[in-house]
Design a protein around this nucleic acid. Structure first.
Length: 916
DNA sequence: TTGCGAGC
DNA sequence: AGCTCGCAA
């Protein structure tokens, strides 16, 4: 018997002399439909049914009904042998579609299948059974057991999954047999069960993945995934043509060029290939290879090495988050787009989804509009530190806002591990992962410990709302378990108030749960009614039930009855540590430590980049000041001269040329000039002679006439000196000191956030207690049960408005790591941000022109703040002394202003506005 | 509506 | 056993 061909595997079964002719026929049909599709055809099912091994074919309705019977029947369990369908929603008449799935219930059907020579593998059981009278005799060890009681065996007992020794004692299968999953929900246990057996069948099988299960590492090829993988693989191939490896689907593939570019950048198919290549080894893997479907015989090892590994890796990449930024590609795309487009308040969800998604057509569909909204809300808004804030005030036009605090966290290389701040969970092939929320303050404290070379403090999961409790409930070898409980209070003998849901229980889902309680039995539902007074941040449900049911609920336990307890544990913390390497972490401190080393390296790099940028800016500014002074003092004559001539003079006087970054930008800038073509020609001539283009001095020549005023020159000088100070400061800084500075800023921002959220909560509570008060009154008096919702809705609206008003405090300031950031300590005056923001404004002058990310509101605020400040200002100091000017610039907030300055400022602001 | 893994 | 979780299909 050839052992390493999947097809041979099936054929061997058919050729087995143990089969009678009918079984052979059945299996032949099975083979033709099985092939590369794990689902069985209707014909096959009928054949199986006809063969008598399965007594009846049940319709889906029958099946469900009998299931219910099974439930209500106590001791005598109604055993159902059935093959039924899962799919084909249109089917109401009990007919079967072509694509069917085997559903096995109870032992008999498994037995029946076993009689047909079909092995049954479930999650918790595994069985190979005798064939129609004759034994396949594959399982000597448990043969007697099977004969006596052809029940499904517990897979753990049989294979000794928990104890490898025990497993080793089990005799291997000697003959081929067909394995059919009892349903399509395969997991590690299935995989392992099958794998182990197949490994015995296939001496050439090569382990390519390892799993941790029950505290042991299992080296395994996810063979069960194989069945489904083949199906998916075949589908893709059919769609995209035979000569396509399924993994090309990961590449950017939209009609929009922009999107395409981004898709490439984000999904990196080539690097993924490279990565897999490294993993598999170059001798067995050639980029672009795929399994040829024309080959009837597929080498098991080829399938695993060429396709399955790629599929698994691709799947894992999208399911398991990165240790560094805590994001999966989908989330990273959202962030990437927010950066790219500088989304502030105006971005509508639809727009955003179209931009983000590679499947924009799908997402624009009617049905799916709500889905991304909900999901993004959960991913990006509910977390402890929101990466993108959702502004829900505009009805359908829900908008996104870059979170202020996120700007501090710094995009893809955050200053603290965002996985731990914002939690993450994911399910992939072979691995799943769950990371709980941890307090940003705990994390910051531990980073400081690491920076000081001190031992870390043990971290426990943390919830933002302090009303719910997190309790350590178990410490096992695999990890620590915690139980999270929500808050439910008895308002009176018929009213319960739920004011906090546990982690992993969401408002919308909970609402559906309550609805199901309200409608479960038409005659006598458990709860009479519920009301909600939720907003984006807090939860408030009010449940009304009969006194009787209240007693029942209390006996059962309110928390249990209303599902207000969830558990989490640290036993399943898998993250991508480096390219293609998934690492298991045993405790949260390990994650932090790994992160620490990576991030520290990046601070070194960051310092260099920042310093380079700052120095360049300084040089530019210095040149500008020199140029302006030259023009003011009439050393340099600009007006009425040829550009080329002027350029040569500038060069001779030692001005540094700053070439534009790209040709395109250069052309665009040149195009804006009236005599663009002439200018271009001239610059090219000059360029030919000295190797630099005239446009390199554009940064000087394009300065606005308004900057020629003395005040502006002085301002520029002040900026230059300030920048020079910063360069000094930065060059003295170490990676550690930079990090500490960032941590300080983060902590300050957290303080701010806490202050505003305390205020917001106070406001909300006040509003709610009023609402609840009124509602409660009605419940108590029971006089007017009609239309309580109407009243609620109105009040809920009011509450929302309050929370909106509070929410608008967040700023939209956004900076990337590449933009020199002149961060000033924020004003500690209070949660009101306008003054703090104004203080930062002078640094904006240093920014690139296109880095104009202020929205109109900000602009207005800035204008108002400036006007207010200048109104108080005294007459400006006209001396040339820069020191004075610096002091004045810093003290401008307090200092009074002249009318002249006022006008000047006004114009400046107007110019800024106009430019947009 | 499905798979995927782990925990209950 | 059957449900949960998130995400992509």
């Amino acid at each position: 018997m050839v052992k390493n061909h999947l097809w041979i595997f099936v054929n061997a079964l058919i050729d087995n002399p143990a089969f009678d002719s009918q079984t052979k026929e059945t299996l032949t049909i099975c083979q033709s439909s099985f092939g590369l599709n794990c689902e069985l055809s209707q014909e096959f099912l009928k054949k199986v049914a006809k063969s008598g091994v399965v007594q009846s074919l049940l319709s889906w309705a029958d099946f469900k009904q009998s299931k219910d019977l099974k439930k209500t029947d106590g001791t005598k369990r109604q055993r159902i042998t059935g093959i039924t369908k899962l799919k084909d929603a249109n089917d109401a008449g009990g007919k079967y579609s072509d694509r069917c799935t085997l559903i096995l219930t109870e032992g008999d059907s498994a037995k029946a299948l076993a009689l047909a020579g079909i092995s049954v593998v479930g999650r918790n059981f595994y069985g190979v059974f005798p064939l129609r009278g004759k034994l396949l005799n594959v399982w000597e060890a448990s043969h007697k057991q099977i004969m006596e009681n052809a029940e499904i065996q517990n897979i753990k007992q049989i294979l000794g999954l928990q104890h490898r020794k025990e497993y080793d004692s089990v005799k291997s299968l000697r003959y081929g047999h067909l394995m059919i999953m009892t349903d399509l929900d395969h997991d590690g246990s299935h995989i392992k069960g099958l794998l182990i057996e197949m490994g015995r069948f296939y001496p050439y099988y090569s382990p390519c993945l390892s799993m941790n299960h029950g505290g042991k590492v299992w080296e395994a090829v996810p063979v069960v995934g194989l069945l489904n993988t083949i199906r998916g693989w075949e589908q893709v191939r059919q769609r995209k043509g035979r000569n396509t490896s399924m993994f090309l689907k990961a590449a950017g593939k939209t009609s929009s060029g922009k999107m395409n570019k981004m898709g490439k950048q984000l999904s990196l198919p080539s690097s993924r290939r490279k990565l897999n290549q490294e993993r598999i080894g170059s001798d067995t893997f050639e980029p672009g290879t795929y399994l040829d479907q024309k080959e009837k015989l597929i080498k098991y090892s080829d399938f695993v090495d060429k396709e399955l590994i790629l599929f698994s890796m691709a799947d894992l990449q999208q399911s398991i988050p990165s240790m560094v930024d805590g994001l999966k590609p989908g989330q990273r795309k959202i962030l990437f787009c927010s950066f790219k487009r500088n989304f502030v308040k105006e971005a509508k969800v639809v727009q955003f989804s179209g931009y983000v998604s590679e499947h924009s057509a799908y997402l624009h569909g009617e049905q799916s509009l709500a889905s991304p909204l909900l999901i993004w809300h959960r991913i990006m808004y509910m977390p402890i530190i929101p990466m993108v804030q959702v502004n829900r005030s505009e009805g359908i036009g829900i908008g996104f806002e870059i979170s202020t605090i996120r700007a501090l966290i710094k995009s893809y290389m955050p200053i603290i591990p965002m996985v731990q701040v914002n939690r993450s969970e994911g399910i992939g092939i072979g691995w799943s992962s769950y990371i709980a929320n941890y307090s940003p303050r705990d994390i910051v404290a531990n980073v400081r410990h690491l920076l000081n070379g001190e031992p870390m403090e043990v971290m426990d999961p943390w919830g933002k709302g302090f009303k719910r409790t997190i309790e350590k409930t178990a410490t096992k070898e695999s990890g620590v378990s915690y139980t999270i409980t929500g808050v439910i209070d008895e308002v009176n003998d018929s009213t319960l108030r739920i004011s906090e849901l546990p982690i992993r229980r969401w408002t919308q889902d909970y609402k559906e749960f309550l609805e199901s309680m309200e409608n479960d039995k038409i005659e006598d539902p458990f709860i009479k009614d519920y009301k909600e007074h939720n907003d984006d941040i807090t939860v408030q449900f009010e449940v009304i039930l009969s006194g009787e049911n209240m007693t029942v609920a209390k006996q059962e336990g309110l928390l249990k009855k209303f599902r207000l307890t969830t558990t989490i544990s640290t036993s399943n913390m898998h993250l991508f540590y480096a390219k293609g390497v998934i690492k298991k972490y045993d405790n949260p401190e390990q994650i932090l430590e790994d992160f620490f080393h990576i991030r520290l390296e990046f601070y070194e790099k960051r310092k260099k980049v920042l310093l380079d940028n700052l120095e360049m800016e300084l040089l530019k500014l210095d040149n500008k000041v020199r140029f302006l002074l030259g023009v003011v003092k009439e050393d340099i004559i600009v007006s009425n001269r040829k550009r080329a001539e002027l350029f040569i003079e500038l060069r001779d006087k030692g001005f540094t040329p700053f070439p534009k970054k790209t040709e395109n930008v250069d052309v665009a800038v040149a195009g804006a000039i009236d005599d663009a073509e002439e200018a271009e020609e001239n610059s090219e001539v000059v360029a030919g002679s000295i190797g630099v283009r005239a446009s390199d001095c554009e940064y000087l020549l394009s300065m606005v006439i308004g900057t020629l005023t003395l005040e502006k020159v002085q301002e520029l000088c002040a900026d230059r000196d300030k920048l020079s100070g910063e360069v000094d400061e930065l060059s003295k800084a170490t990676p550690k000191s930079l990090w500490i500075k960032d941590l300080d800023a983060l902590e300050r921002e957290l303080d701010e956030q806490d202050k505003t959220s305390v205020q917001a909560e106070a406001a909300r509570n006040e509003m709610k207690s009023r609402v609840m008060g009124e509602a409660g009154l009605k419940v108590v008096t029971r006089q007017a049960p009609k239309n309580p919702r109407k009243n609620n809705n109105k009040k809920t609206d009011d509450t929302e408005i309050v929370s909106e008003a509070i929410e608008t405090t967040s700023s939209s300031a956004m900076e990337t790591d590449n933009v020199p950031k002149v961060a000033k300590p924020k004003s500690r005056a209070g949660p009101k941000k306008a003054p703090a923001r104004k203080q930062e404004k002078p640094s904006l002058i240093l920014r690139d022109k296109d880095d104009d990310d202020d929205d109109d509101d900000d602009e207005v605020l800035e204008l108002k703040a400036r006007l207010a400040a200048y109104n108080l200002e005294s007459s400006p100091d006209h001396s040339e002394d820069m020191e004075t000017e610096v002091h004045e610039a810093q003290a401008r907030k307090k200092a009074p202003s002249t009318k002249e300055e006022f006008v000047n400022c006004d114009k400046f602001s107007m110019m800024r506005r106009k430019r947009k």
